[in-house]
């Protein structure tokens, strides 16, 4: 129960932050990515502001356990793999095309109209397709 309440609080705060910062407005996000046009720096302030509490949170995890649950995440991997880079480039292309990423796509679903719903449906379909896609790619590699 405690764990679910914490998750609810975190989700609500995440949603409020995305709403307040303007990150559910695709014009602001695409404005940040438009370095060659009328550049909108807002997203940099959002990212910087978001990293601040997390720098301290990560320090606090050392040698401790979370309030609920057993362990903190393992130390970050350091291998730069091709799925990491190609996947991130693919994500960046979709992000630039529409101006939505997964958090804001969810946060704005109640007021984003059919456009938001269509984007979210396509995004969820893409996520759902990845495990079979991965298996297909792996078997292709194995036969070559």
């Amino acid at each position: 129960m405690m764990r679910r309440l914490i998750a609810l609080l975190s989700g609500a705060l995440f949603g409020a932050g995305l709403h307040v910062s303007g990150m559910t407005d695709t014009a602001k996000v695409r404005g940040f990515l438009d370095f060659a046009g009328a550049w909108d720096p807002t997203l940099a302030f959002v990212m910087g502001g978001a990293m601040l509490p997390m720098v301290f949170a990560w320090r606090f995890t050392r040698g401790r356990k979370p309030l609920t649950g057993n362990t903190y995440p393992a130390p970050p991997r350091s291998d730069i793999t091709s799925p990491l880079i190609t996947g991130s480039i693919l994500f960046g292309m979709g992000w630039g095309l529409v101006g939505l990423c997964p958090g804001p796509a969810l946060a704005s679903i109640t007021y984003g109209g059919w456009q938001g719903a269509l984007f979210l449906l396509a995004m969820l379909a893409g996520m759902w397709a990845v495990p079979p896609l991965r298996r297909g790619l792996d078997s292709l590699k194995a036969t070559n």
């Binding site: 705060l13 932050g17 709403h19």
Partner: peptide
Amino acid sequence: EWIWGLVGGVMIGTAAAVLLLGTGRIMGAS
């Protein structure tokens, strides 16, 4: 607008910290 960006950003980071310290999970939307 960017002051609201900073305020909203700190809220997002606090949400991530609450989830991490409270449940041990990483707040990655995807």
